[in-house]
Amino acid sequence: MAELLIVRHGQASFGAANYDELSDLGRQQSRALGETLRALDWVPDRMVTGSLMRQTQTLAEMGFDGVVEEQAGWNEYDFHDLLNSRYGGTALVDVITDRKTHFRALKETLAEWQLGGIPSARETWQGFCDRIEQARLAAIRPGAERVLVVSSGGAIARLVANSLQLSNDQMIALNLQIKNSSTSRYVFSGDKFFLHEFNSVPHFHNLERAALMTYS
C-alpha cells in the first residue's frame, strides 16, 4: 500500500511579532527529521505543504529535492482570529503571549467553536473539517507511493480524529500533544485509509537530539 507521512511543522516563533516563522530550534528539528528519513531510505515522490511560512520552511529545511505542491487546505485553523473573535475583537495580551494562559484559552475556544460558537470567526468548524478532508483526498490521489505533507497540529489532529471516528474533545486532546516536527503515518489504497503511526519522533531518539523536542 502507498504511504502518507504527515509532518507537523518545526517550532514556530511563539510570542514574536511574526509567529509564522520557524525558530532556530524549529529549523534544527526539521533538518534532523530530513536526515533521519533519508537514512531510513524514505524519500517522497510527492511533497505537499500548506501555504503558511512555518510549513514551507519546515519542508525546505528537510532538504528533499523535487516539486512542492502548495495546498492551503493543510493550513492550521487561524487561532489568532478565533481567540480575538471570542474575546470581542482583541484577545488579552496574556492570552497571546503567555504559554499557559494561551493554551488554556485555546482549549476552551476550540470547544466553543466546535459547538457552533464564535460566529464572527472567519472560518466555521465545519468549514475547517471540510477543507482538511479535501486536502487529504488531493494529497493521496493516484500517482504517488510515498506522499510527504507538512501541516500543523490542528489539521493533523482533525485528520486522526476523523480517521478513527473520535469525538471532538478527543481531537482537542490530540491537538495539544502533537510534537513539533513529529510524523504521523497512514497507509492507503483506493478508499482504504488507515492510521499506522501517530506523533512519532525517530529523529529525537538519541541523547544528542533528545533536547530538541518541543510541543509548541
Rank of each mutant, 00 (worst) to 15 (best):
I156Q: 12
S152T: 03
W125S: 10
P119C: 15
Q170N: 07
R54N: 05
R104V: 03
K100L: 15
T101V: 11
I140W: 09
L59E: 00
G116P: 04
G88R: 08
G73R: 06
G153T: 01
E145A: 13
T101F: 13
H102W: 08
Q71Y: 15
I118S: 07
N168G: 11
F103H: 08
L82V: 00
T58S: 13
L110K: 07
V160P: 01
A144M: 06
G117Y: 10
M62F: 02
D169W: 13
D65F: 10
E145T: 07
A91S: 03
I132E: 07
Q170R: 06
V95T: 07
M53E: 07
V67K: 15
H80P: 13
S152F: 07
R122G: 08
T109M: 14
T124E: 14
T101C: 14
G88A: 09
R54F: 10
E133T: 08
L83F: 09
I140T: 06
I96L: 10
N162H: 11
D81W: 14
Q55S: 01
K107W: 09
T58L: 10
V149L: 14
Q55L: 02
Q114T: 00
A91Y: 02
D130F: 12
D169L: 14
A105G: 02
G153R: 04
D94R: 12
Q126R: 12
E108H: 12
L52Y: 08
A161E: 00
V67P: 04
C129K: 08
S51D: 10
G50Y: 10
D94Q: 11
Y87A: 05
F79K: 06
S163M: 03
E70T: 13
I140F: 10
R158N: 11
V149C: 12
A72L: 07
R99E: 05
G73E: 01
A135Q: 01
E61S: 05
S152Y: 05
G88T: 01
V93E: 15
G117T: 03
D94W: 09
A72R: 11
I118Y: 05
N84Y: 07
V149G: 13
Q126T: 02
S163L: 02
Q55F: 03
R86S: 07
S51L: 13
P119L: 15
P142R: 13
G143E: 01
V68T: 04
D81C: 12
L59I: 00
A60M: 04
R122I: 02
R122D: 04
L106E: 02
H80Q: 14
A138M: 09
Q114E: 05
L83T: 02
N162F: 08
S120G: 08
L115C: 06
L137T: 07
A155T: 01
V147G: 11
T97N: 13
G127S: 13
T90F: 14
I118M: 06
A157H: 00
L52P: 02
R136V: 00
R86Q: 07
G73W: 04
